[in-house]
Simulated assay, not measured.
Amino acid sequence: MLVAMEEKEMNGQKPKREDFAHLEGRGISISEAAERYGIPFSTMQRWVAQGWIQILRPGSRGKAYEINEADVAYMAALYHAVPGKRRGKRIRPRD
């Protein structure tokens, strides 16, 4: 399920964006990403809308758009690093 969340047990440290550089530019659909990384579809859509996940290829004529898997893996690692219920909790560091 969590390809990136094998994350070599981050040893209690917060994941870094660089940890997922090997996935940079690899396209994945939102539904596939949600399933693979264990993130609710609506959460994934919100992250895309907020610009936290880059769109690599816009969808057209019923085709799903592709998002950057490196961004997805990083956000998923942050999401899963927060213990317990995540609703309303900030998972992404302030810029």
Score class of each variant (00 low, 15 high):
F41Y: 10
E7H: 03
F20S: 04
A21E: 12
R61G: 07
K8S: 11
E69Y: 01
H22I: 09
I28L: 05
I39G: 08
E9Q: 11
D95S: 12
S31Y: 09
A33S: 14
E9R: 13
P40D: 06
A70W: 01
H22V: 13
S31Q: 13
Q54C: 07
L56C: 07
R86D: 02
K8C: 08
G62M: 05
V3H: 10
R61Y: 13
N68A: 00
Y79I: 02
E7Q: 12
P58E: 13
K63G: 01
I67L: 06
I30Y: 03
R87I: 00
G88N: 09
P83K: 15
W47N: 06
R87E: 12
M75L: 15
A64W: 03
R92K: 10
E66A: 08
Q45C: 09
M10V: 07
Q13H: 09
L2G: 15
E24T: 05
I91N: 03
L78S: 04
E6K: 10
Q13A: 13
Q13N: 13
M44I: 07
Q50Y: 05
I39D: 04
A64L: 12
I30A: 14
A76E: 02
T43G: 00
F41T: 00
L2R: 13
V3Q: 09
I39P: 03
W52H: 15
D19K: 07
N11R: 12
M5Y: 03
S31A: 13
V82K: 10
I39Y: 10
I53W: 11
I55S: 12
R57N: 05
L56W: 05
A4G: 15
Q13F: 12
G62I: 00
F41C: 00
Y37P: 01
I55P: 07
M5D: 08
K16C: 05
E9P: 01
K63Y: 06
G84Y: 11
I30E: 12
M5I: 11
E35P: 01
R36C: 01
A4Q: 06
G12Q: 10
E24G: 00
P40M: 02
E69Q: 15
L2E: 12
V48F: 07
E6N: 09
L56K: 07
A33M: 04
I30W: 01
A34N: 08
F20R: 02
S31M: 04
V3G: 11
E69W: 03
K14C: 02
Y74L: 08
M44G: 07
G51I: 03
E9I: 04
R26A: 09
K89Y: 00
E35G: 09
I53M: 12
E66Y: 11
A64N: 11
L56V: 04
E9L: 11
F41P: 00
L23S: 02
R87T: 06
M1T: 07
A64M: 10
A34C: 09
I67R: 11
E35K: 15
S31N: 13
I28Y: 01
E9D: 12
A21H: 00
G25S: 02
V82C: 13
I53N: 12
I30K: 15
H22K: 14
G12W: 05
L2S: 14
P83Y: 09
Q54A: 10
S31I: 07
E18T: 11
